[in-house]
C-alpha cells in the first residue's frame, strides 16, 4: 500500500469471502482491499469466479455468501439490498448487460440518478439539467442521442451495450466501479472510447476494479494492482507488469498455483 492510502478508510474490504451457486462453492476465500484512488485489475481463466465476485459485490442473491465479510466504506455490505449498494455509490458494469424491452434508456437513467440523489438528500434532478448532463456524457462516449429513447439495451450490438454501461457509469458517478469484462468484444476505437470514459471517472476519492482477460485494456486503464483469480481464490497479486507476464505465459502455471493452495 502506498502512504496516502494508509491513512484513509478502504472503500472496499473483502475478507475470506466464500460464496456458492447452485450448491457449488465458487468463491473459496477471497481477500481484497481497495483504497480510494486505486485501480485494481482482476484477471483469471474462464470460470474462475470473476463475475461471481463482481455480482456478490453488487448484491445478486443468486449467490449465497457462506462465510467471510465484505465492507464498503467500513460498513457491512452484505446486509444491504442491491439498490442500497447502488445508492451508496457502487456501480457494476455487467459482463452481459440485460435487455429491458419497454423501458426507455432515458427513463431508466433518470430513475437511477434520482434514486441516488434521494439517498444523498438531494431533490430530483431538474429536467433541463438532466438532459444537458446526459448529452455531455453521450458526447464523451460518442453515442448517438437516439439511443436515449430506445429501450434499455434492446437490440443494441455487443459494443453498444458495453458503451451504454460506461455511459451509465459516467452519469451516475459511482465511488466504486466494478467493470466486468467491459472490454471484451470491443474494437480498438470502441476500447479507447470506453477507456477514456473510465479514466474520466478516475479520481483520488474513487476506486475502480476492472475484470478483464486482456492486457490490452490495461494499456489504456493503467492499474495500480493486478490480481489473478483461479478456482475461486486470488492466487497471485502484483503491479501492472503482472498482466504482461500473464499475457506471455498464459494461465498454465496459475492453475498449478491454485492446485497448490487448495
Amino acid at each position: 500500500m502506498n502512504k496516502t492510502s494508509m491513512s484513509k478508510t478502504a472503500i472496499l474490504e473483502i475478507k475470506d469471502l466464500h460464496a456458492t451457486a447452485g450448491g457449488k462453492e465458487i468463491l473459496r476465500g477471497i481477500n481484497l482491499t481497495v483504497y480510494p484512488g486505486e485501480v485494481h485489475a482482476i484477471m483469471g481463466p474462464n470460470g474462475s469466479g470473476k463475475s461471481t465476485l463482481a455480482q456478490v459485490i453488487a448484491g445478486r442473491d443468486l449467490y449465497g455468501v457462506t462465510s467471510g465479510e465484505v465492507l464498503y466504506e467500513g460498513d457491512d455490505l452484505l446486509t444491504l439490498a442491491p439498490e442500497e449498494r447502488a445508492q451508496r455509490g457502487i456501480f457494476l458494469a455487467f459482463q452481459y448487460p440485460v435487455e429491458i424491452p419497454g423501458v426507455s434508456n432515458l427513463y431508466f437513467l433518470k430513475a437511477a440518478l434520482n434514486a441516488i440523489r434521494k439517498r444523498k438528500g438531494e431533490p430530483e434532478v431538474d429536467a433541463m439539467d438532466f438532459l444537458s448532463l446526459v448529452r455531455r456524457k453521450m458526447a464523451l462516449m460518442e453515442m448517438e442521442e437516439s439511443l436515449l429513447n430506445r429501450a434499455v439495451n434492446a437490440g443494441f450490438s455487443g459494443g453498444e451495450k458495453k458503451r451504454n454501461e460506461i455511459f451509465q457509469m459516467a452519469v451516475l458517478e459511482p465511488r466504486l466501479a466494478v467493470l466486468d469484462e467491459t472490454d471484451s468484444g470491443l474494437d480498438i476505437d470502441a476500447l479507447k472510447i470506453v477507456s477514456n470514459g473510465v479514466n474520466t471517472l478516475r479520481g483520488p476519492d474513487r476506486a475502480i476494479v476492472v475484470v478483464t482477460h486482456y492486457q490490452r485494456l490495461l494499456n489504456h486503464i493503467v492499474p495500480d494492482y493486478v490480481h489473478v483469480l483461479a478456482q475461486g481464490r486470488i492466487v497471485k497479486s502484483g503491479g501492472k507488469s503482472l498482466a504482461l507476464e500473464l499475457e506471455e505465459s498464459g494461465y498454465a502455471g496459475i492453475e498449478e498455483l491454485a492446485e497448490a493452495v487448495r
Binding site: A58, G59, R60, A81, P82, E83, R85, A86, Q87, L92, F94, P97, V98, E99, I100, V103, F108, A111, A112, L113, A115, I116, R119, V152, Q168, L172
Partner: peptide
C-alpha cells in the same frame, strides 16, 4: 425477468 429486475436494482432503483 429476474435478470432485468436485478439490473434495475443494481442501478439504485428500489
Amino acid at each position: 425477468d429476474e435478470e432485468a429486475l436485478f439490473y434495475l436494482r443494481a442501478r439504485g432503483i428500489g
